[in-house]
């Protein structure tokens, strides 16, 4: 089965950017995720939630792209939250020692609660 083409959508919830990568984060189309996060960072948004609920798999290219996102938020002392990740993905990030650079949440609501954002 061919993986679905990668695409990114996002929305702003108060001062938090919620980004939804969709598809297989394995190719250069994934740079759309980096540019989406950069776009918010340039407008002063320092809190970013990336919802991986519709991301099938993350390979080495995907990790390289996420390093970029982590670095950008680190530079502005922002907060990066990852949600809706599969256990396999969480295990990989922990094994690589990357989990200290962002926060894991089971779902988007809990990430937004943590960031003190209430949706109406």
């Amino acid at each position: 089965m061919n993986p679905s083409p990668f695409q990114v959508t996002s929305r702003l919830v108060k001062d938090v950017a919620v980004v939804y990568p969709q598809g297989y984060l394995n190719n250069l189309a994934g740079e759309g995720l980096v540019s989406e996060c950069s776009r918010y960072a340039r407008t002063g948004i320092k809190k970013v939630v990336v919802n991986f609920g519709k991301t099938d798999l993350i390979n080495s290219i995907g990790i390289s792209l996420l390093l970029h996102v982590m670095e950008e938020l680190q530079a502005v002392e922002g907060t990066l939250c990852f949600t809706d990740m599969s256990k396999v993905q969480v295990d990989i990030f922990e094994m690589l020692g990357l989990s200290k650079f962002f926060l894991f949440f089971p779902d988007e609501d809990r990430a937004l609660q943590f960031l003190n954002v209430r949706e109406r």
Binding site: L28, S60, G62, I63, S64, L65, L96
Partner: peptide, 26 residues
């Protein structure tokens, strides 16, 4: 990536990302 049908520049760009992601180098 090496065997992909991407053009050479895109292929090199992807290969670099593979290397960066593999060794966690930014």
């Amino acid at each position: 990536e090496i065997t992909s049908e991407k053009n050479f520049q895109e292929k090199l760009h992807s290969l670099l990302h593979v290397v960066l992601g593999t060794f966690l180098a930014s």
